[in-house]
Design a protein around this nucleic acid. Structure first.
Length: 299
DNA sequence: TGCCCTTTGTCG
DNA sequence: CGACAAAGGGCA
């Protein structure tokens, strides 16, 4: 019976479950990005958007409104420094000012779900794919891109951190890895119907006792081991690249099909499996590399 | 140009 | 304090 519990903050992904409010427009920062939120009811926005998927054509201006992603300039944020974009003179200083005020967007569970789902199957998205995703999620292209980048980094760290130490309990590692990659579905998922509605399921039945990495909840998932780390990038890249990316897609076809519906929605947005299977821009080589370079036998 | 990696600044 | 999004710098 619902044993799920590995979630501290496991919000059932129920849309826009973010604690914070839709934030009253993050002001500016980034001329290229436009985080201006239209103050739409996030979730709703998402839906409609998802259904329509306007598909921005020019990426340099993917005007995205932050749906539920609470981009909160923090209440204490001195709107006294409201760089209302326009200002004359010292553009530099302006920039400095703006720079200073970095706003950290907090993606909604919904967004994270979709992102995670996607990332699990594809670590490198093509420009177009990112754009589409961005329109679906109402995030900017840049945000998507950044998020993916951060995830990749996490991924790396995760591996780096877990491999050496637990190399002896490979089975677990691989299973954990599996989860990491989403091969066995994530704890939470989201269903997106053609209507563009996102509903979440959070039943998952993975029960790795000691290996429950919160991982794809969009939050924590590992000790803080790597704060002052120094991985050897090179060696790293190799193994990393070899387990990754699109190599998963074909096989992945989840057991449960949490994603299938998601896929459906993606298709609506012009995102089809074909597209997914297409070689992304980078590392597009469709090598049949094994997902996991035999960790399972190195016992 | 975009990615990787590190650092910065914010949020929980 | 840790996690995270985002910025900055360097590289191919």
């Amino acid at each position: 019976m619902s044993v799920d519990s590995a979630y501290p903050q496991s919000l059932p992904c129920s849309e826009s479950s973010n604690s914070r409010e839709p934030s009253p427009v993050p002001e500016i920062y980034e001329p290229e990005e436009n985080y201006a939120s239209l103050q739409m009811s996030s979730a709703e926005t998402l839906h409609t958007e998802a259904a329509v998927s306007p598909l921005p054509s020019s990426m340099d201006q993917l005007i995205q409104n932050n749906p539920d992603s609470s981009t909160s300039p923090s209440p204490s944020s001195p709107s006294a420094t409201p760089p209302t974009s326009v200002e004359n003179g010292t553009g530099k200083e302006e920039k400095a000012q703006v720079k200073k005020q970095k706003i950290r967007t907090v993606f909604s569970q919904t967004q994270l779900c979709v992102l995670n789902e996607r990332f699990q199957r594809q670590k490198y998205l093509s420009l177009q794919q990112m754009q589409e995703l961005s329109s679906i999620l109402n995030l900017s292209y840049k945000q998507i891109k950044t998020w993916l980048q951060n995830q990749r980094m996490k991924c790396k760290r995760w591996q780096k951190y877990n491999w050496p130490k637990n190399s002896h309990r490979v089975t677990q590692v691989s299973s954990a890895m599996t989860d990491y990659l989403g091969l066995s579905s994530c704890h939470q998922g989201c269903l997106v119907n053609a209507s563009g509605n996102l509903s979440m399921w959070s039943n998952h039945s993975w029960t790795s006792p000691s290996w429950n990495y919160p991982a794809w909840n969009g939050q924590t998932w590992c000790p803080q081991a790597w704060n002052n780390q120094a991985w050897d990038n090179q060696a790293w890249n190799n193994q990393f690249l070899s387990y990754g990316e699109e190599a998963l897609q074909p096989q992945i076809q989840f057991q449960q099909n949490p994603v299938s519906d998601l896929e459906a929605s993606l298709e609506i947005a012009g995102e089809t499996y074909d597209a997914i299977l297409q070689a992304p821009k980078y590392y597009g080589t469709q090598q049949p590399m094994d997902l996991f370079p035999d960790y399972s036998m190195s016992i």
